[in-house]
Amino acid sequence: MSNKMTSVSTSKVSLKSKLRSKKGQQLMVIITFMIIPLTLLVVFTGIPFVKMIEFSFYKMKYIGPREFVGFQNYIDVFRRDDCFKSLIVSVYYMGGALVQLVLALYFATMMVFGVKGSSVFKGAIFFPYLICGIAVGFIFRFFYARGFVLDTILTGLGFNAESIPYWLQDKRINNISLVATSVWRYMGQNTILFLGAMMSVSPDLYEAACLDGANKWHQFRYIILPSIKSIIVLNLILSISGSLSAFEPPYVITNGTMGTGTYFVIMNRLAHENQKVGLACAMAIILFIIIIICTVMQKLFFAYVFDDGTADESKSAVRRRKNEEKKLKRMLERE
């Protein structure tokens, strides 16, 4: 083992000197390979982002004079009825995301315990994720329309036709109907993510647990759940920004009428129909700030809650062990 280690390090040294002698060529590769992606990044993300911050302080249209208004746009986001309501609507979507997570967790667990024909189930549950948002919109406009799919199914099941509510017009439930489409669309993708993480647990572990007399619940609680807790938290946090970003289905199904305007639907309307560019930019910046907060939360969560390894190993020990493992893996690959 130690023999190999030295051979690796000597080859590294010789490579290093080789690289240094080719510094010029290396620089050229770096520049030519990065110039296009960096230009694209600056032009289509960097500059727009800076401009967005600038515009958010002005009252302006796409063309014509503009007027500096300070933080008025930001205040308006919380004062204006349409903007503020859209924030409330996103709470529905967050609730939906929670339901979706629980369902995904359930189905992924069922599949990890072994199912015949799992690829069929996987495919069926996942496929909605790949359908274009506009098509999803049409599918559910049809699904919820009065007297169409859902109503027919319900009356077929024996519900009284008159007691069935208007799924898209009734303000008490229309947001729930729309959130359901989003659960329908994304639940399968979550399931696949969870399943991927669960599968990374060595099957020996399940076998050993079985021999020790662990039942399914114990397996879930002590093997499966720990293996995917970080991905669950990740998804929980992502669902906050995700629920503010819901766009195409509500845009097609109700176009944001009857109090179903999500944050993006309202932002789109303000930006491109009403040409309130400054206000739309302020909305975008607020969304961005929320996303940053979520990301920081996620980082903190991973740093302080999860990365502590097991009880008898300190954080730094875990890190050392992981590095050691990485090195070993690399060495094995080199052979």
Binding site: T45, I47, P48, F49, A271
Partner: peptide, 24 residues
């Protein structure tokens, strides 16, 4: 730094920036 730049860029919501991308 460049890795972080791309990471940071991915946090900016796509539809939101189109207001200003449109101008460009």
């Amino acid at each position: 730094f460049i890795r972080n730049l791309f990471m940071f860029a991915s946090l900016i919501p796509g539809i939101a920036t189109q207001v200003t991308v449109y101008q460009i």
